[in-house]
Amino acid sequence: MPRYALQVEYDGAPFHGWQRQNDFPSVAGAIEDALAKLEKGAHKIAAAGRTDKGVHALGQIAHCDMVRDWTPFRLSEALNYHLKPNPVSIVNCAVVPDTFHARFGALERRYLFRILPRRAPVTHLRGFVWQIKQEMDLDAMRNAAKVLVGRHDFTTFRSTICQSASPVKTVDKIGIEAVETDYGTEIHFDVRARSFLHNQVRSFVGTLERVGCGSMTAEDVQAALDARDRAACGPVCPPHGLYLAQVTYPEPLFD
């Protein structure tokens, strides 16, 4: 039974997250339904990250098992045909060993968060950036972000419904850059770790946004981290600015 790795891109707005649900649309459900049109029967796919309701992806990685030997090109084309009109796309497809697992084999996950500081309402980017109405101090945010890099107990930045066995995680990087676009200067957060707690990235960005706007300092972020108390966290930012951008494995999956 051949196994295939899929690079999946999607707009998370119409979905109640990645994970299949009985009563609500999900990204996994859309792909599994498309697979069932290619080979009858129940299909189950696994993914590198179970993104929440409204979160987007540029480089989600999933794997599926098929009965037939499909060429990667034919499988991706057939899936994209049957995924219509869902805003989900199979960008890459490759045959992988049956020992490959999209979730457990990942070495690093990279999330992108986009903020657009501007007064005028967002039109073309609505649902794809978090708009705030004041300028942000990038240097202050970068300085505060250093507090969160490394191995820490991230209880403060963890959802109360998080199911992870431990709040201790290692954050490899939090990069913050200004990116010029046709719609204004966006602030991009590049957050990398092997794995994350539930709502951890959105909690980071919500807290750092408060630093950028002058309501908190790097010392406040350190105190919040040390408190190990969810109440010490800044606001959890909305999901629509967040993207699962890339997942890294020991070997490249696609040519």
Rank of each mutant, 00 (worst) to 15 (best):
160 T>G: 14
160 T>F: 04
160 T>V: 08
161 I>C: 10
161 I>R: 15
161 I>P: 05
161 I>W: 14
162 C>M: 09
162 C>W: 10
162 C>D: 15
162 C>G: 09
163 Q>R: 13
163 Q>S: 13
163 Q>V: 11
164 S>L: 09
164 S>I: 05
164 S>A: 15
165 A>F: 06
165 A>E: 13
165 A>I: 06
166 S>Y: 06
166 S>L: 08
166 S>R: 09
166 S>T: 15
167 P>H: 09
167 P>T: 10
167 P>I: 07
167 P>L: 07
168 V>S: 06
168 V>D: 04
168 V>K: 07
169 K>L: 12
171 V>L: 10
171 V>M: 08
172 D>H: 09
172 D>E: 08
172 D>I: 00
172 D>R: 07
172 D>F: 11
173 K>N: 12
173 K>Y: 08
173 K>M: 11
173 K>D: 11
173 K>L: 14
174 I>N: 00
174 I>P: 00
174 I>V: 11
175 G>D: 02
175 G>E: 00
176 I>P: 00
176 I>T: 00
177 E>N: 01
178 A>I: 00
178 A>S: 12
178 A>D: 05
178 A>T: 03
179 V>E: 01
179 V>I: 07
179 V>C: 00
180 E>K: 10
180 E>S: 13
180 E>F: 03
180 E>D: 12
180 E>L: 11
181 T>I: 02
181 T>Q: 01
182 D>L: 15
182 D>T: 10
182 D>R: 14
182 D>H: 12
182 D>P: 13
182 D>F: 11
183 Y>K: 05
184 G>V: 02
184 G>H: 01
184 G>Q: 02
184 G>W: 03
185 T>Y: 08
185 T>L: 15
185 T>K: 15
185 T>N: 10
186 E>C: 14
186 E>G: 08
186 E>F: 10
187 I>A: 08
187 I>R: 10
187 I>S: 07
187 I>W: 09
188 H>D: 14
189 F>T: 02
189 F>R: 04
189 F>D: 03
189 F>A: 05
189 F>W: 03
189 F>N: 02
190 D>V: 11
190 D>K: 04
190 D>S: 07
191 V>G: 07
192 R>I: 15
193 A>N: 11
193 A>C: 12
193 A>K: 13
193 A>L: 14
193 A>Y: 12
193 A>T: 14
194 R>M: 13
194 R>G: 15
194 R>E: 14
194 R>H: 14
195 S>T: 09
195 S>L: 05
195 S>P: 03
195 S>R: 09
195 S>V: 03
196 F>Q: 02
197 L>R: 01
197 L>I: 02
197 L>P: 01
197 L>S: 01
198 H>M: 12
198 H>V: 04
198 H>W: 14
198 H>S: 06
199 N>L: 12
200 Q>I: 04
200 Q>H: 07
200 Q>K: 04
200 Q>C: 06
200 Q>Y: 03
200 Q>P: 03
201 V>G: 09
201 V>N: 11
201 V>D: 08
202 R>E: 05
202 R>D: 05
